[in-house]
Simulated assay, not measured.
Amino acid sequence: MTFAQHHLDLPGDAPGQTTRLYWYTVGPETAETKVHLQAALHADEQPGTMAIHHLLPMLRDADATGKLRARFVLFPSVNPLGLATRVLRRHIGRYDLENGVNFNRRWPDLYPAIAESVKGKLGSEAKADVATIRAAVGAWIDAQSPVTAGQKLRLHILKSAHDADIVLDLHCDDESLMHIFTSPDLMPGLQDLADRMGVAATLTAEDSGGGSFDEVLPNLFRKAQRANPDAAIPMACEAATLEYRGQADTHDAFGILDAQGLFDFFVGRGLIDLPPSAPVTPAPGPTPFEATEVLRTSKPGLLAYRVELGQEVKAGDIVADLIAMDGPEAFVGRTPIRAGTSGFILSRASAKFAVAGSAVAKIVGKDILPSRAGGYLLED
């Protein structure tokens, strides 16, 4: 058996602090394909952790019978630093409380960091070009001098993922249907993942504006391709953010279902030599993320929704009312919040008290919105 648990102790930024990161490896070390799978980078998003909890024994059992054809690296809870960010009984696992940075933002732009080191070394052999790029990234990571625990954690995660062929980052939304974020040039290649997850939407963007983890490696190879048009550089990493419903949807039943979907995805890719558990049901095809409206409030108030998840709306339809909480109409007046596009409701806010600028819903449409084109696409 190759199934093994590992850990790394991260010295804290204050005296007496140490945080332990756990991960697992399973499958042949010499396998041609490497899969990096992580959950809870936003440490308060636990459905992915539940899914990996159920996936680990499935992979362990398949390994015991010699059925694995890939090397799997799995981080069930990849951000132990974020697990500790609790304030007054509330988990603030989305942001680093030291600097306010979202844990899934500002990941490095790798190609500029290695451009000089690969200059003149890329040619007509795709496999050799990938190896050259990955070796340069690995050397760049090793040359860094991280100071804080957060910096050390990020470099460790990146070191694990940089040479993986498939990188899946498991997240969840607030209150939401299942969906995926990925790069447009990775579709329809990842349609099999969307099908096995049973997603309501796959939202694509080359650059959503925040330096998200799932964009790091596709951007590396995309920029390498554009800078070296005569080289045979493939898109050597399929990366995606998997949004497993909402934060409250951390249940065994969902975890079992989601683990089986991931397992069957790997089976379908030939990475596990077993039959799938069930026939696949096709999911909707990809949609540009720029066609998804993030509907926001213009003032504070109490949200009263008029729509359910998955409900179709037209531009101008009322998605929610905002009950006034100050002024002459306090606790009496209601202001309608209207959809700015036609589509379906992908997500809503679970916390119904909204301040000015709060995200109310994501509406997945078909047409790119002028206000979204080329802008910052994330809710953050």
Rank of each mutant, 00 (worst) to 15 (best):
D163E: 10
L83A: 09
L88Q: 09
F3V: 01
L220I: 12
T250S: 13
A201N: 09
K299I: 10
L303I: 13
P286S: 07
T148W: 09
D169W: 08
F181M: 09
F289D: 00
D321W: 11
E116V: 11
P234D: 10
R69E: 07
D129H: 02
P80M: 00
G209F: 09
Y22I: 09
W23M: 03
G310W: 07
F265V: 01
D195T: 04
Q151D: 08
T241H: 10
P279D: 08
T204Y: 02
A240R: 07
T2G: 05
P370C: 08
V35T: 00
R226C: 12
H171S: 04
T19A: 08
H171T: 00
G310P: 04
I272F: 02
L110D: 01
T250E: 07
G138A: 13
M50Y: 01
I92E: 14
G374I: 03
Q311L: 05
S183Q: 12
N228V: 03
V167C: 13
L81N: 00
L88A: 09
S342I: 09
F254L: 12
P28C: 09
Q151N: 12
R90E: 06
K314G: 11
L122Y: 04
I92V: 13
V319W: 05
T132L: 05
R334A: 14
T287S: 04
H36V: 05
A320I: 06
T65S: 14
S342D: 03
R196K: 14
I323G: 15
A339E: 06
L37P: 06
Y95F: 15
A31L: 02
S176F: 00
P275Q: 08
G301I: 05
V332A: 03
V360T: 01
S212E: 10
W107D: 03
Q46K: 14
A126V: 08
G333A: 11
L242H: 00
L68N: 03
L153T: 15
A64P: 04
M187A: 02
V130T: 13
A291E: 04
M1V: 15
K366A: 15
G246D: 05
E312V: 10
R334S: 12
S208Y: 02
D63H: 00
G285K: 02
G268N: 12
L193Y: 06
H7R: 14
G261N: 05
P234H: 01
D192P: 12
V118N: 01
D207L: 02
K127A: 15
D96T: 12
A253R: 13
D173H: 10
D367T: 15
R20N: 09
F254E: 01
T281A: 13
F353S: 07
A236W: 07
F353D: 11
M178Y: 14
V101H: 13
